[in-house]
Simulated assay, not measured.
Amino acid sequence: MTIHITGKVRDPGVLALPIGSRVVDAITAAGGIKKGADPGPLNLARRLVDGEQIIVGLPPPPGSHPITAPATTNILSLNSATPDQLEQLPGVGEVLAQRIIEYRDTHGGFQSVEQLREVSGIGERKYAEIKDKVSP
């Protein structure tokens, strides 16, 4: 998988990492966090998604969704949400949150919100309840 890491790391840029890598692995591959810098709100244990950008120690650009968006965010990114954040969606519990993450990991992320229909346990009614609360 390929990710882009930027911000307060020693060697920012585009990196190729093994599937299943986590944020901490990307930071390590980028030479680690610069001396005196703080990773900020990043969840260092979160699995990476192919093609994502990780911003270390800096606020996200205006209009973007932070990698570790709080559960209260109006629009939740399917490609970066944690299980706890997914569980905040209507009708999504622990099992369904895990299925969404497994789908994301298996398919290299969500290209569209409509792909939620392919996740086992999401029927038309549940899809209708959450489609406007998420983005790819």
Rank of each mutant, 00 (worst) to 15 (best):
I100P: 00
L42G: 01
P12Y: 04
T82G: 09
A30F: 03
L89D: 00
P90I: 13
V49T: 15
I33T: 07
Q98P: 02
I3G: 02
G57M: 07
D132G: 10
S77C: 14
G36M: 02
P70N: 15
L17H: 02
I100H: 03
R99D: 09
S64W: 11
I33E: 05
L58H: 12
I54Y: 04
G93H: 11
P136S: 10
E94Y: 10
P61V: 13
A16Y: 08
H65M: 06
D84L: 15
T6L: 14
D25E: 14
L15D: 01
V49L: 10
R104A: 06
I122M: 02
K131P: 05
M1F: 09
P83M: 10
Q88W: 09
L89A: 04
I67H: 10
A30C: 07
E102Q: 10
K8W: 09
R10T: 14
P70R: 15
K35P: 06
G36I: 00
L78D: 03
D84T: 13
S80F: 02
V113A: 07
G36H: 07
G51A: 13
G40A: 08
A37Y: 01
L96V: 06
T106I: 05
P70F: 11
P12H: 05
E102M: 12
Q53I: 12
G109V: 07
A69K: 07
L44M: 13
V14H: 09
L44I: 15
